[in-house]
């Protein structure tokens, strides 16, 4: 019944609709002044150039170079293509590779299971406005302010086998940095020490932003402190939780400085990032081989990023 008029209207409308739509588009363009258009163009172009120049080009070049045996000397035209040989070498004859992958996973697990929850717990405690909370806050956050190179040195003073604080206090002679079974845990402790402070601060900022009336309402309803946190505060903090999760994954993937400062990522402290650096940067210049390692690292990172993005996007749709 309503079909006919509608069709008619539709048929009747197109010509003017077309003119209004083109006219509308033209008018909108004319609304922007020359300056606006330049600004918009720059705002699109500059980040685009930066992303292409600083992310995509190097990443592509790294993938391409991973198929060569370039040593960093001589023109690009002389680079020899070796196919997948670098990858075969990485997997088959490069002893530090497997420990590096294991250590990277261990790093992620340790930060995720131990350091992050402790950081969150400390944030909750500090949120209680206990006496001297500013002092604790500063003390816990201090390691984040220090550079990792400095952190490496501080822990060297503690962990040194012959002259370190730890062995002197405990009366032991454990080779904290030298024994490959022990040193990864010693380093994870130092990394966790720093990570706890970071997470604590992020989470504390989030907790301060939670509407106090929610807690009051929960208290009026007779909820215990624990269930208030888990049933009310934690769900409200979802954006912060995601940030904390992302920060933890990023921190464990880019873990590098500490092991590099300690022993350049050798002898039990192998990490993919350290292997890439020791092969590519510096005198060694095994650029092809190092690029293969970097490509593997890129693939691993992409895996995590894909999983994360997929999760976030799916949740946003709900």
């Amino acid at each position: 019944m309503s079909d006919l008029p509608l069709i008619q209207a539709d048929r009747a409308v197109p010509p003017p609709a077309a003119t209004t739509s083109t006219g509308g588009r033209g008018r909108r363009l004319r609304l922007l002044s020359r300056t606006d258009r330049v600004v918009i163009a720059l705002m699109v172009l500059v980040p685009l150039l930066l992303v292409v120049g600083l992310v995509w080009l190097p990443a592509t070049a790294t993938v391409l170079l991973s198929g060569t045996d370039w040593d960093g000397i001589g023109p690009v035209s002389e680079i020899e293509w070796v196919g997948a040989r670098n990858y075969a070498d990485v997997v088959n004859i490069y002893p530090p590779f497997v420990p590096a992958v294991q250590n990277n996973l261990l790093w992620l697990a340790a930060l995720f299971v131990v350091a992050t929850p402790i950081g969150m717990f400390l944030a909750v405690l500090l949120d209680k406005e206990i006496r001297g909370s500013r002092f604790y806050q500063t003390a816990l956050y201090l390691p984040v302010v220090l550079s990792l190179a400095l952190i490496g040195f501080i822990w060297q003073l503690i962990y040194s086998r012959d002259q370190g604080l730890l062995n002197a206090v405990l009366g032991t002679s454990v080779d904290w940095y030298g024994d490959p079974d022990v040193n990864i845990w010693a380093v994870l402790f130092a990394a966790g020490w720093r990570h706890v402070g970071y997470i604590m601060l992020l989470y504390l900022a989030g907790l301060k932003g939670v509407d106090p009336s929610l807690r009051e309402a929960a208290a009026v309803d007779g909820a215990s402190e624990t269930s208030t946190f888990f049933r009310v505060v934690f769900p409200v903090m979802r954006p912060i939780n995601i940030i904390v999760l992302v920060v933890t994954v990023i921190e464990s993937l880019r873990a590098f400085d500490l092991v590099w400062v300690i022993n350049k990522g050798r002898n039990g402290l192998e990490l993919l990032s350290a292997l890439v650096t020791s092969n590519v940067v510096g005198e060694a210049s095994r650029i092809g081989f190092g690029s293969a390692l970097a490509t593997i690292m890129l693939a691993v990172s992409l895996l995590f990023i894909t999983v994360y993005l997929a999760t976030v996007m799916r949740e946003d749709k709900r």
């Binding site: 080009l57 190097p58 790294t62």
Partner: peptide, 14 residues
């Protein structure tokens, strides 16, 4: 460094 080489090194920290 020339061309891709420069880009590659950028990607690896140098």
């Amino acid at each position: 460094l020339t061309g891709a080489a420069g880009g590659a090194l950028l990607g690896t920290g140098l």
